[in-house]
Amino acid sequence: MIELTGITKTFTGKQGPIHALKDVSLSVKQGEIYGVIGYSGAGKSTLIRCVNLLEAPDQGSVKVKDVELTALSPRKLREARSNIGMIFQGFNLLKTATVYDNIALPLKLTGLNKTVVKERVEKYLNIVGLNEKKNAYPSELSGGQKQRVAIARALSHEPEVLLSDEATSALDPDTTEAILDLLLKINKELGITILLITHEMNVIQRICDKVAVMENGEVIEEGKTKDIFTSPQHSTTKRFVNSLFSHDIPDEMLTNLNKTGHVATLSFFGESSGEPALALVSKKFDIFPNILSGSITRLKDESFGQLLVHLKGESSEIKNAVQFLKEQDVHVEGVKISGDNQRVS
């Protein structure tokens, strides 16, 4: 559905050139929710604006539904953009227009007749749950309601692709959850492909099928959300994943614990999160597991849990226990056996 290949973008700053994107490539399949995450300055906002050519890349290919957008004439590009909806962090609503008119006016500018415009506005206000607010003004709405209007406006053009530019970062946690549920509903019921950017890992965790991690204008890691969470490779990715799981154990305590065993991080995904793996380990092997911290969250449709545990016992028993845990689909990280310099993970 979306194919970006070798995207490069450089801006001219006061201190010299700013390389916002450096040979970035990614592929989003039809029906996916694909997330791009990165800290401020990573290049993710520039990247998403290149998808509909609000920012024209210096080099590279931008294809949506196999159409090369960079090769289109201005008229053809406008037509192609009608198939790409976009929602923004700042809502971008007309302050002096009602909710109804904020959605209707862009439709009228495309030449649709009044009957079709009315049908579209009512249909998509109903989808976002704001029919009763159609005569209200933006100043009378909450932040979450404003974002729902912006989503309805984007959907009213009936696109096949929806771009989300930090759409939840200005919202409180409860409202963010509601907007994420709405995006899931749109994806599932309307079949719309969604590409979103964010700096919040909980957004990726809640709704994304795949994720790309950006840093300094480059994609440093990408893959299925499940794989990124259970086995992050890059240090930045690990920071994002660890932000959801606070294992704040004092270094002195960890040092003392490692004298009598090994401290490990256990990651559980899907069905394995509900299995009594540690209880089975204590029965099968001569070790004593002690849970130091942990939590369970959701990755879209499945559960994901992480525990920080102290495995007390002999190295040979711990090795056998780790192997058993792997066979139970538990990802183990951080176990290092003294004397052989080999990690059991």
Rank of each mutant, 00 (worst) to 15 (best):
L4I: 14
T8Y: 03
T8S: 09
F11S: 03
T12V: 11
K14E: 14
K14A: 14
K22C: 09
V24K: 02
K29T: 07
G31C: 05
V36R: 03
I37T: 12
K44T: 05
S45L: 02
T46Y: 02
V62T: 01
L69H: 03
T70Q: 10
R75M: 10
R81V: 00
M86D: 11
F88T: 02
G90C: 07
L93G: 03
L94Q: 14
T96A: 13
D101W: 05
N102R: 00
I103N: 00
L105D: 06
K108F: 11
K108G: 03
K108P: 01
N113F: 05
K118E: 13
K123M: 08
N126H: 12
L130K: 03
E132P: 05
N135T: 00
A136C: 05
E140Q: 15
G143I: 12
R153P: 03
R153Y: 02
L155E: 00
P159D: 08
P159Y: 09
V161H: 08
L162T: 09
L162C: 11
L163Y: 10
L163W: 07
D165N: 11
D165L: 08
E166V: 04
D174S: 14
T176H: 03
E177M: 09
A178Q: 15
A178W: 09
L180C: 12
N187M: 08
L190M: 15
I192Q: 02
T193Y: 00
T193N: 04
I194N: 06
L195Q: 01
L195T: 10
M201G: 07
Q205D: 07
C208R: 01
A212P: 09
N216K: 15
E221V: 03
K224R: 12
I228Q: 03
I228A: 12
T230M: 15
T230W: 06
S235R: 09
S235Y: 05
T236C: 06
F240Y: 14
V241T: 01
V241G: 00
V241I: 15
S243A: 10
F245K: 08
I249H: 04
N256A: 15
K259P: 07
H262R: 15
V263W: 05
A264R: 06
T265D: 06
G270D: 15
S272Y: 12
S273E: 12
E275T: 08
P276Q: 09
P276R: 11
A279L: 08
L280T: 14
P289Q: 04
G294R: 03
S295K: 15
T297C: 08
R298C: 07
R298K: 15
R298L: 12
K300A: 04
F304L: 05
G305D: 12
L307D: 00
V309G: 00
H310C: 14
E314G: 13
A321T: 00
F324L: 01
L325H: 04
K326F: 10
K326G: 14
V332S: 02
K336F: 10
R343M: 13
R343W: 14
